[in-house]
Design a protein around this nucleic acid. Structure first.
Lengths: 134, 134
DNA sequence: CTGGATCCATGGGGATACTG
DNA sequence: CAGTATCCCCATGGATCCAG
């Protein structure tokens, strides 16, 4: 009985965990979103558009997205070399759900920031109250 | 001109970054998802359902979700004490976009895992090829 | 230009002990 | 039971140098 209560959130069973592990990093979703707007892009283009990503993290992110089949990588053996990235069909299928989430974020961002601010103020009051006692 | 190219992904300008910062951690989305299924839950209930979250991280996660106004926290001064968490209206509004993303994940998880596997194999072949040369 | 390889600092997050 | 406080480790990710 007690076994049946803990059904589907235990790490082993649930695919949700895989998804969250996949997009839990700061950059993956951002890169996908970026590529969805600009289409085909070069390495340095992506780096410049994001601004504050190190080239190491960009490389790692692109590799893992490529490994999952979300983006394609085309290498041009020119001098200087050129590499272009693009969303695959699978990658494109990810755009709608991502946009939903981002849209929700834009819609509620102000509310959330206000909530956060109020919460911090309440926290400081409590801290004051404690200090007044001692 | 060159300024106009880098429009909206720079950290300062874009609300997307706030969203990603908010949900970039491993646990927030999982807790929201869990609460959306079970409704009102106690601290230890959440911990048990997730399984492999430390009580520290659960506390931190719950606090930040509460700070953003996504969940409500009710404390019962009994002995032993009891605390119950629940999604707020704002928190509930987050369920559909999250479910979309998770649904996408479930649908494509197998494909992704296969892609990843094939990618690793290709990687190993390349490594072998290199060694054969030297 | 596009990375790979390495070194290294930071902080996220676990383990443990303690409190109300 | 539901945290808080502390210590501490290790992965994440930045900086730098090197290669094709």
């Amino acid at each position: 009985m007690s076994e049946n209560n803990s059904e589907k959130f235990q790490p082993a069973f649930c695919p949700i965990r895989h998804v969250l592990d996949r997009f839990g990093d700061k950059w993956s979703i951002l890169v996908v979103e970026l590529l969805s707007h600009k289409g085909r892009m070069r390495f340095s283009e992506i780096a410049n558009n994001i601004g504050d990503i190190s080239q190491k993290m960009l490389t790692v992110t692109l590799r893992s997205l490529e490994a999952d089949g979300l983006i394609s990588r085309e290498f041009f053996p020119e001098i200087p070399p050129r590499v272009e990235y693009e969303l695959t069909a699978l990658g494109k299928s990810l755009i709608p759900p991502i946009n939903n989430l981002l849209h929700w974020g834009q819609e509620h961002l102000e509310t959330i920031l206000n909530n956060r601010k109020r919460y911090e103020e309440k926290d400081q009051e409590k801290a004051k109250g404690k200090k007044a006692y001692s």
